[in-house]
């Protein structure tokens, strides 16, 4: 993985510190071209990986990349699935079965022609594979060497102690997409233990890592211990703690943990991208 991964929260009105800033971002990035411009600036500054949620609009960005293969020939996307709010809002409105009917490609009963509902309600592995394929459709023809599951799903499975699901996900991503599975979590130490318990070794885990312990559940001490002692491939996110830390402070802290393989950050202006990238490269070698 590259040291610097460019994130997408700024494009989709995700701001953990301010709803008002989030709205300003959603106005600024109304047109897909505004997103593409910022990605292009990041590429010109030497960033080659875009880590993004499977938001509908990413499909348009992918169309643009497919239409300009030379420009994006060295560019990787790390998809993060699913775009949870889409499903969460659907579950509130349609219930769990209604949501499956809406998002499983084709007709559910057609897809599982043989056993119909009885089949779908037992064969979770096939259901998961269908949903992964549906989310991955937009990336066809684009390099996706690492495929992440979003924290809301990872942490749900973790809390429910359904660790075998991780194993099935892991195997499918490797087999079908020839890619490395990644896990985003707000509970890194517990997740690493869970993955190890089902035989998943040295996994890619993306979690909050910042000096003030923001969204580092269980406490900063156990995170630091794991970063020093355990075997895994950490990706640091929320390194600025939703804006509570200055980039200099934030990256200096990351530098204390040589195991951190990549740092995820998002920014909307060329100068911010340049500054943060150079700080990451200075402190995290």
């Amino acid at each position: 993985m590259d040291k610097v991964l460019f994130g997408d929260n700024q494009f989709f009105a995700v701001n953990h510190a301010s709803d008002e800033k989030a709205r300003a971002q959603s106005i600024r990035f109304k047109e897909d071209s505004a997103i593409i411009n910022v990605i292009d600036q990041a590429i010109d500054l030497g960033i080659n990986t875009f880590m993004c949620t499977t938001h509908d609009r990413i499909g348009n960005i992918c169309d643009h990349m497919r239409a300009n293969p030379l420009r994006y020939k060295d560019f990787n996307i790390y998809p993060c699935m699913p775009y949870a709010h889409k499903y969460a809002n659907a579950v509130t409105e349609l219930g769990i079965m209604g949501t499956i009917k809406q998002y499983v490609p084709g007709n559910v009963f057609g897809t599982f022609a043989k056993g119909g509902f009885a089949f779908i309600s037992k064969d979770f592995k096939s259901l998961m594979e269908l949903l992964i394929d549906a989310e991955m459709k937009m990336f066809r023809g684009i390099k996706t060497p690492v495929i992440f599951i979003q924290n809301v799903l990872v942490d749900l499975i973790l809390g429910l102690k359904m660790f075998e699901v991780f194993k099935e996900y892991d195997a499918y991503i490797r087999k079908k997409y020839n890619a490395e599975p990644g896990y985003i979590t707000m509970n890194m130490p517990a997740l690493l233990d869970a993955l190890n318990s089902v035989g998943i070794e040295n996994p890619i885990i993306c979690s909050s890592i910042n000096k003030i312990g923001f969204r580092m559940s269980g406490g900063i001490e156990v995170y630091e211990k794991y970063l020093k002692e355990k075997e895994f491939r950490p990706v640091a996110m929320q390194v600025l703690a939703a804006g509570a830390l200055r980039p200099e402070q934030a990256t200096e802290y990351l530098g204390r943990f040589p195991k951190i393989e990549s740092v995820l950050f998002g920014a909307s202006s060329k100068s911010h991208i340049e500054e943060t990238k150079s700080l990451i490269e200075t402190h995290c070698k």
């Binding site: 509970n187 923001f214 804006g243 509570a244």
Partner: peptide, 20 residues
Amino acid sequence: KYITDLAIPVDFYLRGEEYS
């Protein structure tokens, strides 16, 4: 004042500190 300074610490996080 931001939530980064005011959040209630939890040992397990899912969708927001408040749920835990």
